[in-house]
């Protein structure tokens, strides 16, 4: 493709990714909204942890940790969609996208730089929220492996949701539309298991495999680390970001 043939060699592309990564991460953490989003997510995590994960009756500690990851998955996905909807759509609305696309910066660098910045922010949020399951160790018996598997699950689920949101953000002209489109994509993948129930083979198997949460996050939530789940999340991320790059490449022509 033309844009690829004109793109600079790899170290240059990495430099571009690094520049955009710093700029985007700075845009998140240097504004109050980034901190307020983080505080809100952690507050909701904490309340859900106390109200439902720990609950009021006696519960096995591994069940508490499992329930924490269940609820944290919801907040992580919502935060991811909110973060992703502004990644490209905001630049397009403000006119900065035209500047970016007319610059020698490769669209791969644009998408990856922005995506990695949002994912790093999300990873920071996840890391802070892990203090909650770590507290269960005071009175319970929690394996580090279980917490790590759950944290990896949150990172992968958040990464996949973020990538779908980035694709939606690349397609939409406004942040609102990007948010709705991103949420719709995520909901379709969340409810794929329901669709699978009313489908026939071979579509049934495909839809079952596409169930983002039910088929691929639940094992990690329970502490079961499977290569197939990691590969699935990586595939969703790779495909979504690849598609977003192609969409941007198409827009460069317009």
């Amino acid at each position: 493709m033309q844009s690829q043939s004109q793109s600079p060699p790899l170290p240059g592309q990495l430099r571009q990714i690094g520049t955009l990564f710093r700029r985007e991460l700075g845009a998140i953490v240097r504004t109050p909204s980034g901190w307020i989003i983080a505080a809100t997510v952690l507050l909701v995590d904490g309340l859900l942890f106390n109200a439902f994960a720990v609950g009021t009756g006696a519960k096995l500690s591994s069940k508490v940790v499992e329930d924490f990851f269940y609820f944290a998955a919801g907040t992580t996905m919502i935060a991811s969609v909110l973060l992703a909807m502004r990644l490209l759509a905001e630049d397009r609305a403000s006119g900065a996208m035209a500047l970016l696309l007319s610059s020698p910066i490769d669209e791969v660098a644009i998408v990856l730089g922005k995506y990695l910045a949002a994912w790093t922010y999300l990873a920071g949020l996840t890391a802070i929220s892990l203090a909650l399951p770590a507290l269960v160790m005071i009175n319970g018996k929690v394996s580090f492996g279980h917490v790590l598997a759950g944290a990896l699950g949150l990172l992968l689920l958040g990464g996949a949701t973020l990538a779908l949101g980035t694709l939606a953000s690349s397609l939409a002209r406004s942040q609102l539309v990007a948010g709705v489109l991103g949420a719709a994509l995520v909901v379709v993948l969340l409810l794929a298991w329901l669709l699978a129930k009313v489908s026939d083979p071979p579509l049934k198997a495909v839809l079952q495999h596409l169930a983002l949460f039910d088929a691929h996050f639940r094992p990690l939530q329970r502490g079961l680390l499977r290569l197939s789940d990691v590969v699935f999340f990586a595939s969703v991320i790779a495909f979504s970001l690849g598609a977003a790059t192609r969409v941007l490449g198409h827009q460069r022509w317009s």
């Binding site: 500690s61 591994s62 499992e66 018996k141 929690v142 394996s143 492996g145 279980h146 790590l148 598997a149 495909v206 495999h209 094992p219 329970r222 502490g223 079961l224 680390l225 499977r226 290569l227 197939s228 590969v231 699935f232 595939s235 790779a238 495909f239």
Partner: peptide
């Protein structure tokens, strides 16, 4: 990616890290 996912699911590796 579908082919990769299918191949990995057929030769899956799993580790149970929970209690």
């Amino acid at each position: 990616l579908f082919a990769l996912n299918y191949a990995v699911s057929q030769r899956d590796i799993e580790r149970d890290l929970s209690y």
